[in-house]
Design a binder for these strands. Structure first.
Lengths: 218, 218
DNA sequence: ATTAAAATTTAGACAAATCTAAAAATAGGT
DNA sequence: ACCTATTTTTAGATTTGTCTAAATTTTAAT
């Protein structure tokens, strides 16, 4: 399994899809920052190895084996992210790039020991679930802050956009996972929100709200 | 800097050499487990980048920049080895292979933080010195156990051969770094040694003794 | 100094992963 | 159903790191 193959599988997994709604060549090319023709080549190669199903002009979907492989890479990525934050004091906006490299290290013992050292975390620093060794992961009952109704309360549990600029913005505004949130008001004009968070009150644009996941109180 | 280039530099460094006694193509090929013709190609490439000096048929030697790069990779390798042993309970015979992968991770912050987490170790699990960020490392006044005279005492501080079989042998015989050693007797016939170590007495072949480094008392 | 053996380099090929440009297939609008 | 725009694939080229086989240079022995 080459690094490139692993990256393709990971991205195909993240793009979702299924046997009935396969992922398009173009979508993969865009995520991989490569050309569609390169994707076609790789699709053939992965199909050859039984990691994806591929029909000319019809796109790609992961096989069971492909899904398993993708999940193991995602598991490694997210565990390394937790490691970097918890053990090496990285901030959550710095971890992705390094984890992209670390996720390709081949050693089952290594990642199991990292898991153990971290006491088997279930979520990464951005609130995304960490698959277990056998590919299972928690699906949290969460919703976007932008979809909550006035008055409802919840706990901030994840980000949809985990780009550095967004994460830095959240840091600057002291918005962090685990914080409680209550929607006080939603502006009709621009859909911005007034929220209460950990005692403070702040105003948040719709764009921000639609990238923050909240777990509602029962 | 590609992974392959890094591996070549590391191996050239380990082979020693200098401007006056450059490393031969064959020696590098053997260490890299590749063919001499491939080494020639890479030598040209590294010379192009000013990482080695290379004259046709005369072998290669590291430039200052090449040495610096090699040391930074060796630093990473050895720090990761310490990490694996101290933080993840790997045994000293398991770390090399994984460190070979981890040493290529590109993040200055990562390795500095690992260094800090480990409290700036000066030696790796095999007793080899860890270069500092600026490429300096301790040179310990050590000698091979096989070169010690009868009666002399010392502390076991390193291994010359760090292959898994040798290290496992040492484990099995409870020979570890930090243990005190006194040479009791040297057999004329096969140069095997009778030694006292941590209260016990044991017999050691010449081959073992010539792969164990000892630091003499005063 | 010559010559055979060993080491090294060159030339040409290959696999992996990518690209560009052109061709083929599909999808959407009428 | 047809035509056009878009998507996707093919064909052929490129780069990196490797290889084999042949040619060249060095070395060491006489």
């Amino acid at each position: 399994m080459t690094r490139s193959e692993e990256n393709y599988l990971k991205i195909i997994f993240h793009l979702g899809g299924s046997d009935s709604t396969p992922i398009t060549t173009n979508a993969i090319a865009e995520q991989m920052e490569t050309k569609p023709s390169s994707v076609t080549d790789m699709a053939k190669k992965l199909a050859e190895k039984n990691l994806v199903k591929y029909k000319r002009y019809q796109g790609v979907s992961l096989t069971e084996q492909g899904t398993k492989t993708a999940l193991s890479i995602i598991r490694k990525h997210r565990l390394w992210e937790v490691f970097l934050v918890k053990k090496l004091d990285f901030s959550w906006d710095e971890v992705h790039e390094v984890a992209e490299q670390l996720e390709h290290i081949k050693s089952e013992k290594l990642i199991d020991k990292i898991d153990e050292l971290l006491e088997f975390p279930k979520f990464d620093p951005h609130g995304d679930p960490i698959p277990s060794k056998d590919g299972k992961f928690m699906v949290r009952d969460k919703q976007l802050l932008s979809e909550m109704s006035i008055g409802s309360k919840g706990v901030c549990v994840g980000v949809k956009d985990s780009s550095a600029p967004f994460l830095k913005f959240l840091d600057k505004n002291k918005i962090a996972l685990g914080h409680t949130i209550q929607v006080l008001e939603i502006e009709d004009f621009d859909h911005s929100l007034r929220i209460a968070m950990e005692g403070r009150e702040l105003r948040i644009s719709h764009q921000i709200a639609s990238n923050l996941y909240v777990k509602k109180n029962e």
